[in-house]
């Protein structure tokens, strides 16, 4: 099996979960990866302080789309205030594949967008020194 393009990565890329739009929604954010021009946006519905529902939209490579899709399944039901504290490692562990430095932003775009929507922080998630 391919080390990067594993079956579950390709599955989430080809049939992404929770993709589309949500109207009405409570929170939204839109951002892009300046390296490749890929774009990702999110709509979030909040209930009882938790992410009740969300939809991602945009275009991107297999890594960025799979990361958004896999993460979306974890994010639904999560307290909104916890989202801002999620780290880059949280995404890398969810993906379960070795992400090279040149592809990190692909993997992290969805977390950047989620943090933007929930905290207004538009910075890239920091990657812990390895």
């Amino acid at each position: 099996m391919d080390e990067l393009y594993r079956d579950y990565i390709l599955d989430h890329y080809k049939e992404p979960r929770n993709f589309g739009e949500l109207d009405p929604h409570d929170l939204e954010w839109h951002d892009h990866n300046p390296l490749c021009g890929d774009e990702l946006g999110v709509h979030i519905v909040v209930a009882d302080g938790k992410v009740a529902d969300l939809r991602f939209h945009g275009t991107g490579c297999a890594i960025s789309q799979a990361a958004a899709s896999i993460a979306s399944e974890e994010l639904i039901g999560m307290p909104v205030e916890e989202v801002g504290g999620l780290s880059a490692d949280w995404v890398f562990e969810l993906l379960g594949i070795d992400i090279s430095p040149t592809r990190r932003k692909c993997a992290l775009l969805n977390l950047k967008v989620m943090r933007g929507a929930t905290t207004g922080d538009a910075s890239w998630p920091e990657v812990a020194a390895s």
């Binding site: 490749c36 021009g37 890929d38 275009t59 490579c61 297999a62 890594i63 592809r103």
Partner: peptide, 27 residues
């Protein structure tokens, strides 16, 4: 078809083929 340019370039790299993927500074 079905593949993003970044993924094309990544797989080409495994074959020792250096190509460019992205917006080529021409958005």
């Amino acid at each position: 078809e079905g593949a993003h340019p970044h993924d094309i370039a990544e797989i080409c790299d495994r074959h020792g083929v250096c190509i460019r993927a992205g917006h080529h500074c021409a958005q």
